[in-house]
């Protein structure tokens, strides 16, 4: 069981503001879903993990990228060739 306080702290970790009056409903829903997830406690590995997978990398070389003006076109706030974000401190 998780509590409303825990849900509030998860929301904060996820950078999502939820209203106080919504906390109760989210908590009830999360508990029902997490209870359903308990079926995973019964899972046992049927064998070794996969050994047939390989990573696909490319050389770290400079390639053409999108034009700066195209990329900046979608940003809410820009200055010269930079995107402005909220304050860090």
């Amino acid at each position: 069981m998780i509590s409303e306080r825990e849900v509030e702290s998860i929301a904060k970790l996820a950078d999502i503001r939820i209203q106080k009056e919504e906390l109760g409903e989210f908590t009830v829903q999360f508990n029902a879903i997490l209870e359903y997830f308990d079926v995973l406690d019964r899972v046992e590995a049927a064998g070794e993990g996969r050994a047939d997978l390989v990573n696909v990398f490319r050389e770290d070389e400079v390639r053409p990228s999108l034009p700066v003006e195209d990329v900046l076109a979608n940003a809410g706030s820009t200055e010269e060739t930079f995107i402005k974000g909220p304050r860090v401190m």
Binding site: I16, Q19, A75, S77, G85, V88
Partner: peptide, 25 residues
């Protein structure tokens, strides 16, 4: 988070305050 695309996020307050409100809405 509204910085690079979509409706713009505010830039006045601290990053977590702005992002949390933006993503909540």
């Amino acid at each position: 988070d509204g910085v690079r695309y979509g409706p713009g996020v505010g830039t006045k307050r601290s990053w977590h305050d702005e992002f949390q409100e933006f993503r909540g809405e």
